[in-house]
Design a protein around this nucleic acid. Structure first.
Lengths: 204, 204
DNA sequence: GTCTATATCTCGATAGAC
DNA sequence: GTCTATCGAGATATAGAC
């Protein structure tokens, strides 16, 4: 029932979700054990099944939803802080690159590794990742539409943005280089600029 | 020593690598057991350690290299079969979408799931994936350069292509939709077309 | 509710018969 | 070189004391 106080140590459940999110993101779902999660969360093993009777799968679903929503807010914040959508896109990719370098190329997309692992093996978790991606598409489409791009090209631009970002993360983590993020970010910014600069294309 | 005859049943080693490639691609590296691999390959368990003394990690590295090279040849073949690079890009994305649907959204990139899993957890395998991606970048850069695009924009276009493809795979498998591949493919084709259509941009 | 101990299973890896 | 049996470790999950 306790949603956690505004200050002080987070609740046991919150610590488990946070630790799970970090470990799933870096090591994947099957590559992370529940024992490792409770150790990182400084929580007793039984707490996992107390808060998540559905076990690892239920914890995974909650982690996907929680970190997916947080990452969506990060995108929205970047777009709202920027003077225009093109700058917003550039800032978002630049911020992602900065985080990647600062974490030793560990922290990229919070759910991508898990998403690929479960896509063909765990239907409930696959659905959780699909809901997060769908939410991001809705979010981005709304942001670009608010900037004057038509609904259909705004959706297509968002999907291209997400694909370029996710793929750049794959390449960047493997190559240990930010070059893919820079190239992908420029590519998406250019496309956004074209859609904003030519209202006819933006309506197409 | 036996490299395998031109016809007949593939060698035990070949069957293990093939089965490993399919399972790692669909379920990931940590999510696939050696016992599952030898069962799929119809091989005895001990054969894994006979052919791969380094165990699972050595098998993983060989799978990454083998399937990475095969996928590179697939890209080259698509580009060579097409009348121009823009058509080649469209055909390649369309073929990827077709394969994805035919396999129930299982077979996308042969190494992406493993690449994300090992990027922060297994340095030898991370290097193997990096070598494959580097090889693909070299391959694509050469193909676009041969079509008349300058070396630097050809490299950037290749990286954008790979990022868009990999990210579209992530979204497509999670959403069970080919929309991301279509949007990403069109986006990359448009960029390739722009670089080919304006030699000045192509030289920049 | 919190936490410990344990049951059951599967993992990667090895030893050794044939 | 092929194949089986088994090892110890670690996985998820559960039972039950406190």
């Amino acid at each position: 029932m306790n949603a956690g106080p505004a200050t002080g140590r987070p609740s046991t459940k919150e610590r488990i979700v946070t630790a799970g999110a970090e470990l799933f993101r870096r090591q994947g779902y099957t590559g992370t054990g529940l024992k490792q999660i409770v150790a990182a969360a400084d929580a007793p093993f039984g707490s996992v099944y107390h808060f998540f009777p559905g076990g690892k799968e239920q914890l995974g679903a909650e982690v996907v939803r929680t970190s997916g929503a947080a990452y969506g807010r990060l995108f929205t914040a970047a777009m709202e802080a920027a003077p225009d959508p093109v700058t917003g896109v550039r800032d978002f990719f630049a911020g992602a690159a900065r985080t990647l370098v600062e974490t030793g190329y560990a922290d990229a997309c919070p759910i991508a590794t898990l998403a690929l692992e479960v896509a063909s093996t765990n239907e409930p978790l696959r659905q959780a990742t699909a809901e997060v991606f769908t939410g991001w598409i809705t979010l981005g489409t709304a942001a670009f539409a608010a900037a004057g791009i038509g609904a259909r090209p705004a959706r297509e631009l968002t999907i291209v943005l997400l694909a370029a970002l996710e793929g750049a993360f794959v390449l960047a983590r493997a190559l240990r280089s930010t070059e893919p993020l820079e190239a992908a970010g420029e590519s998406v910014a250019a496309r956004a600029s074209a859609l904003l600069g030519s209202p006819d294309a933006g309506r197409g």
